[in-house]
């Protein structure tokens, strides 16, 4: 259904509500030069955004304490482990069999803590970098 069909709708046509998706990619703002992983409004983690762990002592994750950290510790640890090399958001979700939204929330948390760096997608708005997209795809194919 075209994105602009009946944005106000009942449950049946609810898919026409504004969502991210096909046909709109070029209009998306792509902050590809993030410093410290944060734009003025937070982390934008597209499926093809690359992230990597920031090198540090093995035990750095242990510094995390508190309720939240304990509840998400295994997943956080798994993500940091996986990100010893550069990974796309989609790869992390697929390799850890974790819903994309969960990966995005945990990555935002890790980035805020300075445990991972967000590299962006490496291409400018409307100009996909085929080499990088290829990396995402081949990363996914290896699964």
């Amino acid at each position: 259904m075209p994105r602009h069909a009946s944005p106000v709708s009942d449950g049946v046509a609810a898919a026409a509500l504004p969502t991210r998706g096909a046909g709109r990619r070029s209009a998306r703002v792509r902050p590809y030069a993030l410093t410290g992983g944060r734009t003025q409004f937070g982390h934008v983690l597209l499926v093809e955004t690359f992230v990597a762990a920031i090198d540090g002592p093995e035990d750095r994750l242990e510094i995390l304490s508190g309720d939240w950290a304990e509840r998400v510790m295994p997943e956080m640890r798994a993500i940091v482990e996986l990100c010893r090399r550069m990974r796309s958001v989609a790869e992390i979700s697929a390799l850890l069999r974790m819903p994309l939204g969960v990966v995005r929330v945990l990555l935002s948390d890790l980035a805020d803590q300075g445990r991972i760096r967000v590299y962006g997608t490496g291409h400018a708005p409307g100009a996909p970098d085929h080499a990088l997209l290829e990396r995402v795809l081949s990363g996914l194919r290896r699964l």
Partner: peptide, 15 residues
């Protein structure tokens, strides 16, 4: 913390 994501039930199940 602002996370850009179209949330699905599977996300909420974990979160």
């Amino acid at each position: 913390r602002l996370v850009i994501h179209g949330v699905a039930v599977s996300d909420l199940d974990y979160l």
